[in-house]
Simulated scan of single mutants.
Amino acid sequence: MFSTVAVNGEVRHWETLRLGDFAQGYFFGAGFFTTFRVEAGRPLFLGRHLARLGRSLAAFPTTVHAPPPHVLREDAVRESLRHCLEADAALGVDFTGVGKLAASDGQLLLTFRSSAPDTERLQREGRIIEVAAPGAYRHGDPMPNHKGLSYFRQYSLMADLPLLGNEVGHACELPTANVFFHLGDVLATPPLGAPCLPGIVRELLLEAGHVGDLPVVERDIRITDLVDARACVFTNSAALAVGVTRLFGKALPDSLALAVRVREDVKAMASRVE
């Protein structure tokens, strides 16, 4: 992570932050965060990330001390981001990587990190998923719909990347990504009630309604039905889309081309926003 950060719009250095200013977030996980892609100094879909952050804060008004409304405005965050990039030569105005906004204790903390070193390889070669964790979630539990600072469960599972399921045998998500399956004639993703995070790329694909000629739909997906999957991709804001080349022992060679198409579509959507 880079040393330059911003707190409520003020450019600071990580080393100068005081734990006491983020005590509820640190000790109790009482806060939320969102992670977004930055390309050549431009944050992708920042408005959507802030809207999701705002919905989470509004859902827990007495539990999480929200930052002042003016620092959560998109124009304010863009200005804060620009000031950070200009202030740090290690970042630079053409920075490409990942930004993170964490809201807790009345503070909005903006930090930066480089893209994961294996992102390009994952996009090129895909990833294998061999493990499922049925019962990891409870159907209808609203908490996975919010990206809380208490993120240890997901963090502890990142290396193995199991497909998380609920107690009735439905697929939910991966630890840090939404998941889409080509089943029959549709590209299906689990509904929010499965539950799963309302990811930004997931939201974009559902709004578009299709990837190429393939309709995109929400529906309950039984893990046992994935034997019939023709392709699979997982999505998040950092990597955009990664193909799953083998799922529970079944080769899915079409997943890489599907992931390429998803990334192309998302980047086209991003270019239309600006």
Results as ranks from 00 to 15, higher is better:
V186A: 13
V211R: 04
E207Q: 15
H182S: 11
P175T: 11
D185T: 14
L183Q: 06
A194P: 09
R219E: 10
G209N: 00
V216G: 03
P175Y: 11
G209C: 09
A177L: 00
I221L: 15
E203P: 07
E173W: 04
A194Q: 00
P198K: 07
V217P: 04
R202N: 09
L187C: 12
D220F: 15
V211W: 08
R202S: 10
T224A: 15
P191H: 06
V211I: 15
D228G: 12
C196L: 15
A177S: 14
T224Q: 14
G212T: 05
R202I: 12
L197F: 09
D220T: 13
L187R: 04
V179M: 10
L192S: 13
P191A: 05
E218L: 07
I223M: 11
C196T: 14
H182W: 15
R230P: 11
G184S: 13
L183I: 12
E207V: 13
P175R: 07
V217I: 11
P195G: 15
E173A: 05
R202P: 08
C196W: 03
L183V: 11
L205A: 07
L206K: 09
R222D: 12
A177I: 01
F181Q: 02
R202Q: 10
G193M: 15
D185E: 15
R230T: 08
L226E: 07
C172Y: 05
R222C: 10
I221R: 06
V179T: 04
V186L: 07
F181S: 01
L192E: 13
A194T: 05
P175W: 05
A177N: 01
V201G: 01
T224Y: 07
V186D: 08
L214N: 04
